[in-house]
Design a protein around this nucleic acid. Structure first.
Length: 300
DNA sequence: AACCGCGACAACCGCCCAAAA
DNA sequence: GTTTTGGGCGGTTGTCGCGGT
């Protein structure tokens, strides 16, 4: 026994802290990743001075600290998206999350287990109670809808999915929303002019309604966002912010989401201050007329 | 006021896979 | 070719707050 304990002494694993994250820990992790990128996750806690393991840091960053997370209740549209995708993909939460900008797989999973699953079961139960003939009608209608849906036909949940499912999981039909898009360029007014966003040869472009000129990715906000996204995606390269590139005249908060997303920013409600907002406002020299409130939303 | 049940959400655990050694 | 390591994912558990009794 003694020898064993001495062996254990020489092979002691570092004691990692567990449980809820404190605001100080969040701050450390956020500061570290925003300045250095995460790189190798196992080295993050060491370098950031945290008593956590790398996995825990990664999870905390992805599910909570990462900029662009959309929090709060799910909209009915998001709900339907989850239901539809779950019907097709099963419990592939990460894949489902790819179609819900700003939502994490964990969040969707929790929502499913706490609410949606029950809702689906209730629906099924109701369907059970409906007389057979009516069920037949409904199921035929449902199958018609499914077959004409852009999501393709329903696959098996055990992974032995049919082709359309595989193509869906490998190559998303729905567009992914990039970091840049949380400014919702479609709804931005530039010096009082509205402009359209489109692509030319896969380069994001924008043009003003009253002009034939097409501008290629030189929109400062777009560039900044792309840069930030690159920074987060490739942390080794470091995060280089386009400091001072946000001109207050180029976008404003509160533009109506024209069927898309509201131009709003949302930051952590749990943290004592709007730290990411503080980061933006501080490090990025955010203009004064961009309102960063705890009620606002930011999308990624 | 105390207790209990429940829902929502955060976080951990274990497994799998791919890349590196 | 094998082992090790790191990252990602899904399932599950833990914690907290709130409402009802």
């Amino acid at each position: 026994m003694g020898s064993k304990s001495s062996m254990e002494k020489t092979k002691t694993k570092p004691k990692y802290k567990k449980g809820l994250w404190s605001p100080e820990e969040d701050q450390r992790l956020r500061d570290y990743i925003l300045h250095h990128g995460h790189g190798c996750w196992s080295s993050v806690p060491r370098n950031a001075g945290l008593q956590r393991n790398g996995k825990s840091c990664r999870l905390r960053w992805i599910n909570y600290l990462r900029p662009g997370l959309k929090r709060g209740t799910f909209s009915s549209q998001e709900e339907e998206t989850i239901l539809t995708l779950h019907q097709t993909l099963g419990n592939k939460w990460a894949q489902i999350a790819q179609h819900l900008p700003g939502r994490t797989d964990n969040e969707i999973k929790n929502y499913w287990h706490s609410y949606l699953k029950k809702k689906v079961m209730d629906r099924a139960a109701k369907l059970e109670s409906i007389p057979k003939t009516q069920q037949d009608i409904e199921s035929s209608v449902k199958s018609n809808i499914t077959s004409t849906s852009s999501l393709g036909s329903v696959g098996n949940r055990d992974g032995s999915s049919i082709d359309s499912n595989q193509s869906m999981s490998n190559q998303s039909i729905l567009p992914k929303l990039f970091f840049a898009e949380w400014f919702d360029l479609d709804n931005i007014l530039h010096y009082g002019q509205s402009y359209n966003v489109h692509e030319v040869d896969q380069f994001p472009c924008y043009s003003y309604n009253d002009s034939k000129d097409i501008h290629v990715v030189d929109h400062p906000n777009y560039a900044m966002n792309l840069e930030m996204q690159e920074g987060f995606t490739h942390p080794q390269q470091g995060v280089t912010y386009n400091e001072g590139s946000c001109s207050s005249s180029e976008f404003y908060n509160g533009a109506a989401g024209n069927g898309g997303f509201d131009l709003q920013l949302k930051f952590e409600e749990q943290t004592p201050e709007n730290e990411f907002g503080g980061l933006l406002a501080g490090d990025l020299d955010l203009p004064n007329d961009i309102f960063l409130t705890s009620d606002t939303l930011m999308y990624i």
